[in-house]
Nucleic acid binder design. Structure first.
Lengths: 133, 133
DNA sequence: ATTTAAATTGTTATAATATAACACTATGTA
DNA sequence: TACATAGTGTTATATTATAACAATTTAAAT
């Protein structure tokens, strides 16, 4: 017993789909994932969506909401899908996960007018990446 | 000539759809909007989506990306759909536009690791509203 | 006033994204 | 073993969104 929280051992489908997304240089859409894993025996949308749901839940991947696409988590500070921030290039669609202690601290401590705090958030910045400017 | 920026006079379809969203206490989904405006002669999804696109573009409404739903803008400080922030209750799905000078200033000035600034962003906070706690 | 460009409309069809329902299988654990 | 929980495979369907094209309206610029 050495870890605080359970290590999620991925199931076969979850592992196949995670590996694909993790290798991809850009966010992947569900049906593109489906197309790419059909040779591995995953034939139906639901098999993909179920794996995606679980992978999002345990924080291995994130959904880019404005793009309906999924990206592997490369940010140790996003505590299990609770707090995510991305930059998105509006020309080339490159997406980068933002890893800023300052930003996550600011947002984690943000209180609205009623004094309410929110432990979970998703932030998407839009602009032009270096290449596209 | 008294205003700096053009006043967008809404077209008939845009006005019908904006009025509906503006009256709604909660974000509305496209096909729910369609159902509600069919009696006014708007019969096809595209007519709805085109009006929605335009209303989003001119900042009269915002899209709640995580919900695929649309809400009227009640925040004078969101400069034409460029910078939006919402709180979303995960139980009752109540959505509130956040109007915080501090937050918008912080995000407008946020620079990533490469020193890049993003003028446009969308932030969605999740939690439980007062009623649901 | 007439022309022209730009935006909007109406329409049919279809693409893309996502879930319901059900029977079955694997896995962990009491 | 038996029980609960999570995952699988499958078919069907629901939900969200856009393509393509012809017609019409609007704005503004001669």
């Amino acid at each position: 017993m050495k870890t605080m929280h359970k290590e999620h051992t991925l199931t076969k489908n979850q592992q196949i789909i995670f590996d694909l997304i993790d290798k991809s240089p850009e966010p992947m859409k569900a049906y593109s994932i489906l197309f790419n894993v059909q040779k591995k025996g995953i034939k139906a949308p639901l098999q993909v969506y179920r794996a995606l749901d679980k992978l999002v839940e345990i924080g291995k991947i994130h959904k880019i909401e404005s793009r309906n696409a999924f990206i592997a988590c490369h940010n140790s500070s996003c505590r299990v899908a609770k707090a995510t921030a991305f930059s998105i290039c509006e020309i080339c669609e490159k997406v980068t996960e933002i890893s800023s202690a300052g930003l996550s601290k600011y947002l984690a401590n943000f209180k609205d007018k009623d004094g309410m705090k929110y432990s979970k958030y998703n932030l998407e910045f839009f602009g032009l990446c270096k290449k596209c400017r």
